[in-house]
Nucleic acid binder design. Structure first.
Lengths: 165, 165
DNA sequence: TTGACATGGTTGCAAATGCAACCATATAGC
DNA sequence: GCTATATGGTTGCATTTGCAACCATGTCAA
C-alpha cells in the first residue's frame, strides 16, 4: 500500500482563492483604483504617466531606459508616457553627452510641482491602506512584495527583453 | 516650541518604494506575466478570459454578474470574455428561469477540460512563487491580500457601480 | 395598471496597451 | 576603417480596455 495516503498533493482541484497572482492582481487593482481618481480626474493622467512622473520625481533625472529598468514598465509604454508628459510640459529632455541615442529626462518646475501635489496625496492614500493592515503587517507586506518583484526578471527573456503588463 | 519636533510626519518627500499600490502592481505583474505565457501562447486566451474560466471552473455555474461580484472584474470585460469563451466553445449559456435578463453560464466539457489543464499548470506556477517565499510567509501574504481585496468596494461608488482595471 | 427607477447584460467609441519592426547611434571584432 | 550586432528609443497595427449609453427585464409603489 505504499506510504498510505494523506499526502494527496493538490495536483487536482485548482483553488482560485489561493492563487497568488490572482490575489495580487485583485489587491493591486483594489488599492490602485481609488488613487487613480486623483491623477485621472484631477489631472487627466494615466497610471503609466503617474508612475513615470513618480520615478522621475523620486529618483531624479535619468533616461527612459533607466525608468524601464527600475519600474519594470515596458519601454513603449514609457516612451508614450514621456511623450504625453512632455506635451503637458511636465518633463523635458536633453541629449546625453555620452550617448547620442539616449535622452536625459528631467521634471520641469511644473512637473516638480505636480509631483509634490500627487506625492502628497499618495502618502495620504498609502496611509489609509496601511491603516487597514496595521503598521507591522503593512511593512512586512511591503518587504514580501519587494522580494517578489526582485525575483521577477529571472528565468527566460525574449528578444530585446520586454517586461510588464 | 510646542511638542518639539522629532515627529516630522512624512508629509513631504513621497517614497515610491514604500507605496503599496505601486508595489502591489509590480508584484502582480511579475507573478502573472510568466503564467500568462501558458494561457496566451498555448491557447490564445487573454488574462480576463482565463480568470472568467477559472471562476466558472472553481465555483460552478453562475451568471456574469456573479462573476463580476466575486472577481471584481468590470462587467464589460466579463461580457466580452464570455463572448470569446463561448465562441471557443468553452462556455455555454442558458436563460435563467427566474430572471429573463440573466443567463446562467456553464463550462462545456471542453471548457472543463481546459480548466483542468490550466488549473494544473496554475498550481505548479503558484508552487514556484510560494517556494520563493516559504510556506508560512506565502500563507500570510495570501491572507493579507484577501483583507485588502475585501475592503475594496467600500467608500464611494459611481453610477451603475463599476469596478476593476 | 402604470410609471419611475434598479439591474443584467451588450455595444460604440476613444484611449491605452503589446508586440514586432524600425531608425539611429554604439560597440566589438577584424 | 568596416561590417555585424547590441542598445536607446519611436512607430504601426491589431487587441484590449474603460466608460458612457443603451436595451430589456424586474421591482416597487401609487
Amino acid at each position: 500500500m505504499k506510504f498510505a495516503e494523506g499526502r494527496k498533493i493538490d495536483t487536482d482541484g485548482f483553488d482560485l482563492e489561493r492563487f497568488l497572482p490572482y490575489l495580487l492582481n485583485q489587491a493591486a487593482e483594489a488599492t490602485s483604483r481609488s488613487f487613480q481618481e486623483v491623477y485621472r480626474t484631477t489631472y487627466g493622467m494615466t497610471r503609466t504617466q503617474w508612475r513615470v512622473l513618480a520615478n522621475l520625481g523620486r529618483f531624479g533625472a535619468m533616461t527612459a531606459r533607466d525608468i524601464c529598468r527600475i519600474s519594470h514598465i515596458e519601454k513603449t509604454k514609457v516612451s508614450r508616457a514621456i511623450a504625453a508628459l512632455e506635451r503637458d510640459n511636465l518633463v523635458s529632455r536633453r541629449e546625453s553627452k555620452t550617448d547620442r541615442r539616449a535622452e536625459i529626462l528631467t521634471l520641469t518646475p511644473r512637473g516638480e510641482e505636480r509631483f509634490a501635489e500627487l506625492g502628497h496625496r499618495a502618502i495620504e492614500h498609502d496611509r489609509q491602506v496601511r491603516a487597514r493592515l496595521g503598521p507591522d503587517v503593512a511593512e512586512q507586506l511591503a518587504s514580501v512584495l519587494r522580494m517578489l518583484i526582485a525575483d521577477a526578471g529571472k528565468s527566460q527573456s525574449g528578444p530585446d527583453d520586454a517586461q510588464d503588463q
